[in-house]
Amino acid sequence: MTMAGPFALRRLGFRRAPLVRLASVPVNPELQGRVFAPTDPYLVGREKVREFSRAVFATNPINHDPAAAVSAGYRDIVAPPTFAVVVQESTLAQLLAVPDAGIDFSRIVHGEQRFSYSRPIVAGDELTATLSVTSIKTLGANAMVTAESSIVDATGSHVVTASSTLVVRGDA
């Protein structure tokens, strides 16, 4: 997903924002609690896992070699812990596409990220993500949106929840 870097938090005056601001809240508060339609299934490819692993310096054989993964007890090679962001990305695109969200793409910075796993993602998984907006908080002119993407496999079993807190800058 495309977002300004965290540096923008300070550069855009995040810390200096007034404590109370009634007008120009940058996000529609009615988004809180909204649950989106599940995404189309994402098939985790073995080469994609290897490509992502190389990009994050994941050199463990379990990330690359099916035989090593199987001997460690997995069905196929295991994706690095942050790989779920690839699947999560399409849900955040859903959020940004909501016409009445009021979220201006160019005003977003990534504040926090978390992944909570029930089991690791392995090659061959067919994953579907469902986005919920769990919290919208206003902090001065800015809004903090917490979006949770619950990712399940083809049997419907939970694999990982990817949670992002996005800071949406209001009018300065």
Binding site: P6, V78, Y117, P120
Partner: peptide
């Protein structure tokens, strides 16, 4: 020695 042992990982940027 095993990437599958990470059960939760969170950060602030």
């Amino acid at each position: 020695g095993d990437p599958g042992r990470i059960v939760d990982y969170g950060v602030r940027f």
